Computed example of a mutant assay.
Amino acid sequence: MPGLEGVALRQLYAVDAPQTAGDVHARAGTGSRNGVRYALDRLADQGIVTRTVAGNTAIYQVNREHLAYPALTAALATFNPYRDLRDRLRDLVRECPWDGPLFALAIYGSVARGEAGPDSDVDLLLVLPDGRDVDDPQVDDLSEALHVHVKRWTGNRAHLDVRTRRQVRTAAESGDPIFASWVRDADLVFGPDLITETKESVA
Rank of each mutant, 00 (worst) to 15 (best):
R37A: 13
A17S: 14
V202T: 03
R113M: 04
V168P: 04
G117I: 00
Y82D: 02
F79L: 00
A68H: 09
T164I: 05
K199M: 12
P101A: 12
A68M: 15
R165S: 15
R90F: 07
R51N: 08
P2T: 09
V134K: 14
A17Q: 12
V168R: 03
R90M: 04
R88A: 10
I178P: 07
D23V: 08
A75G: 09
G175E: 08
Y60P: 10
S174E: 15
G55K: 05
R152Q: 15
V15L: 09
V168T: 06
W98P: 00
T78P: 09
R132S: 06
D91M: 09
G6I: 10
R165E: 14
Y60L: 09
P70R: 06
E200Y: 07
I48K: 01
L40Q: 04
D123H: 02
T50N: 08
T78V: 15
G100L: 02
Q167N: 05
G114D: 03
R83Y: 08
E200D: 11
G22T: 09
D161I: 14
C96T: 11
V62L: 13
A28I: 09
G55I: 04
D119E: 11
S143T: 13
T30Q: 14
S174R: 12
T20F: 02
Y13R: 01
G175M: 07
R90L: 05
G3Y: 09
E200Q: 14
R37K: 11
V139G: 05
T73G: 07
L146H: 02
A75S: 14
A8D: 07
G155V: 06
Y13V: 00
V148K: 12
P101Q: 07
H25S: 09
R86N: 06
I59S: 14
V36C: 07
A14K: 05
P118H: 13
G175P: 02
N156Y: 00
A71E: 14
G155I: 00
P70D: 05
M1W: 12
Q19M: 15
P97N: 00
R113N: 03
P70Q: 03
D91C: 01
A180Y: 06
L128N: 05
R83E: 13
K151F: 11
T57E: 14
A171F: 07
A145S: 12
A8P: 10
V49H: 01
A186H: 03
Y69M: 04
L125F: 07
D119A: 05
A17Y: 04
D16H: 00
D84L: 14
A26P: 06
G155L: 02
A39S: 02
A17L: 11
V183Q: 03
H147P: 01
A14L: 05
R33G: 12
Y69P: 05
P118R: 13
A180H: 13
W153N: 13
G3R: 13
G29T: 00
V49F: 01
E200A: 09
V134W: 00
L67D: 10
D84R: 14
V134L: 11
Q19C: 14
D161H: 11
I48T: 11
R152A: 15
